[in-house]
Design a protein around this nucleic acid. Structure first.
Lengths: 98, 98
DNA sequence: TGAACATATGAATAACTGCTCATATGTTAA
DNA sequence: TTAACATATGAGCAGTTATTCATATGTTCA
């Protein structure tokens, strides 16, 4: 991995990815999705924040393919897109907690 | 790890950590340090950026304990603080490259 | 169809951040 | 000490972003 400098373009993409993780609201949202899918309303209530704020941030997360959705009637359930997301967060936590 | 919700405070710290990784200049700087220590001037030349810009960003990296320094005469050599830094970047790259 | 609910979107604002320029600090060698 | 070099710092500007408010879209059920 470290034997080749990634293209500049890749590092920009990487920065964009970390930017998405670099906001506490988005991190908290992702954390509520660690074990279960949740609707927008559930997340908003859990975090005690405006539905609108949560919806905006979920869009960012979705655009960056960190969460995916499942529609069920009026509600839309969000869940983490894959295990990578958890791993990145856990790796960061390791660093913060040490 | 996922069996306990981290304190709100921890998630703020974590967001701050990811914020540091969420800038392409800082990522590029860290990448130049993947295998070797380098002086401010070397990094500035490698990235073709102002010394001042590099110095400012190195300060951010240092404040967040991602790089450490070694003084030698007029020059100050920067290197990655520990292997965690590499791991976080590599984990992110995995996600971007897949 | 219309009311009630869940979510999404757009615009506006306030706060933040990276870069540049100018200047300061610190080190070496004459 | 002074000149030359390496790095750091502070202020200001420009660009970005998270939140809020208002409104729109979409779904269910009567």
């Amino acid at each position: 991995m470290s034997d080749k400098i990634p293209e500049l373009e890749i590092l920009f993409e990487l920065a964009d990815l970390f930017k998405v993780f670099g906001d506490s609201t988005r991190l908290r949202i992702m954390y509520t999705l660690f074990d279960d899918e949740r609707s927008v309303g559930e997340i908003a209530e859990l975090l005690n924040m405006e539905h609108s704020t949560i919806s905006h941030q979920l869009r960012v997360l979705r655009t960056n393919k960190l969460v995916k959705i499942r529609r069920e009637g009026k509600q839309i359930y969000y869940s983490l897109d894959d295990d990578h997301v958890k791993k990145v967060i856990e790796m960061g936590l390791d660093h913060v907690l040490e």
